[in-house]
Simulated assay, not measured.
Amino acid sequence: MSEVRLAAEQRTEFGKGAARRTRRAGKIPAVLYGHGSDPKHLALPALEFARVVREHGQNAVLTLDIESSTELALTKTVTTHPIKNYIEHVDLLLVQRGEKVTVEVPIVLTGDAAAATLLTQDLTTIQVEADALNIPEQVEYSIAGLAAGTQVHASDLTLPAGTSLVTDADALVLAVNAAPTAAEMDGDSGEATDAEATEEG
C-alpha cells in the first residue's frame, strides 16, 4: 500500500459547532493519537481524504504535513453520516516506519462453489498484523468448485508475506452446504400437511 501525502491543519476550536464550521469549510475534523503523545486535533481536506479512502481503503497510511512537522498516520476509524453519507470524523493512529499494526482486512471470495450448494459466510473481515507500510488491502480466497460439506477457517486463508493472523485460527470463515432440492422442499410441506391432518383426525 502506497503512502499518501496530505496537508493537515491544527484545530483550536472544539465541539459540535466547531466541527460543523470545519466541515462547511470543506475539511474533516480528525484526531491523531498514539505512542503516548498528546492527541492532536486536525482538519483534513475533505475531497482529498475521501479519494484516499476510495482508492486505498480504510487502512490507508497518510504522510501528514502539519505546519512545520511531518507525521506518519494510519487511518483507524472513519465515521460517516448515516443518511447523507459524508465523512463526519476521522481517528488517526500515529505510526513509525517498520512498526507492526493490527488492522481489519476484508475477505474477498472469488469463483463459484459447486452446483447445488449454498454458501454461508460467517466472517467478512479478519484481523491481521502487518507492517504499517505494507498492509494488505484485502485477502482473497477462491471458492471455485468447493463441494457441500466444506468448511473454511481463518487458518486456511493465505496471507501475504510479512502478515500474520490475529483472528482465532479456528474461526469459521465460510461453510458450503447442500442446497435443498425441490422434492425435499415439497416433501417438507407435505409432511406438515400430513401431521396437521392427523391432528385434525
Results as ranks from 00 to 15, higher is better:
Arg5Ser: 10
Glu13Ser: 13
Lys16Ser: 14
Ala18Arg: 07
Arg23Pro: 13
Pro29Met: 07
Val31Leu: 09
Tyr33His: 09
His35Cys: 02
Gly36Ile: 04
Ser37Arg: 14
His41Met: 02
Ala46Glu: 10
Val52Gln: 04
Val53Thr: 00
Gln58Ile: 12
Asn59Trp: 01
Leu64Val: 11
Leu64His: 05
Ile66Pro: 06
Glu67Ile: 09
Ser69Gly: 13
Val78Tyr: 09
Thr79Cys: 01
Thr79Glu: 11
Pro82Lys: 14
His89Ile: 04
Val90Arg: 07
Val90Glu: 04
Asp91Ser: 05
Leu92Ser: 04
Gly98Tyr: 00
Val101Phe: 00
Pro106Tyr: 10
Ile107Phe: 01
Ile107Asp: 03
Leu109Tyr: 05
Thr110Pro: 03
Gly111Asn: 11
Gly111Phe: 02
Ala114Met: 05
Ala115Val: 13
Gln121Leu: 03
Gln121Asp: 05
Gln121Phe: 07
Asp122Trp: 09
Thr124Lys: 15
Thr125His: 09
Ile135Lys: 04
Ile135Ser: 08
Val139Lys: 12
Ala144Gly: 06
Ala148Arg: 00
Val152Ile: 14
Ala154Phe: 15
Ala154Pro: 13
Thr158His: 09
Leu159Val: 02
Leu159Met: 08
Thr163Trp: 08
Asp170Asn: 08
Asn177Thr: 09
Gly187Phe: 03
Gly190Tyr: 12
Gly190Met: 05
Glu191Gln: 09
Ala197Ser: 13
Gly201Phe: 02
